[in-house]
Amino acid sequence: MAKVFIYPGTSLILSDLVSRFGHRPLGSALSVREKVQTAGLDSPPLQITPEDPKKGLRFAAVEVPSGVRGRMSLHGPQIEEAEAGIIILDADLAFGCMGCARTNELVRFLLHQRDIPILELTYPRSDEEGIRFVAAIRDFLSALAGGAAA
């Protein structure tokens, strides 16, 4: 079972397909859950601990807006942990403020910097595209170690 980073991290479709084909999707929910289950945090993920900016500094320089560093404290460790990545290029749902936009750019950049298999796709808009989309993900994931057939 490989750990597959998904972008956008909140994608239902990617999360479902990755786990369906026998791998572990690394999405935003997992890092948010970790914060939710941490004692002493009343309003995660907005509230951060003194450790979080330090984590974020490993991925974004100190002059980068603090919002990006805060977000990278959630996504950065997952990118380091990932053994593969799937990126959706036309993910309008990842739209947000400038902090989100810059974090999204940085996440995609860091994924490409890592020497791991990356699959880039666009969302399907028809049945034919859906078939190609699912087949591409299935082929990509079955090439990773420990994948299973649906």
Partner: peptide, 10 residues
């Protein structure tokens, strides 16, 4: 809105 295409793919 898009999952019907994923269902077709599956």
């Amino acid at each position: 809105r898009l999952v019907r295409y994923i269902s077709s793919g599956l």
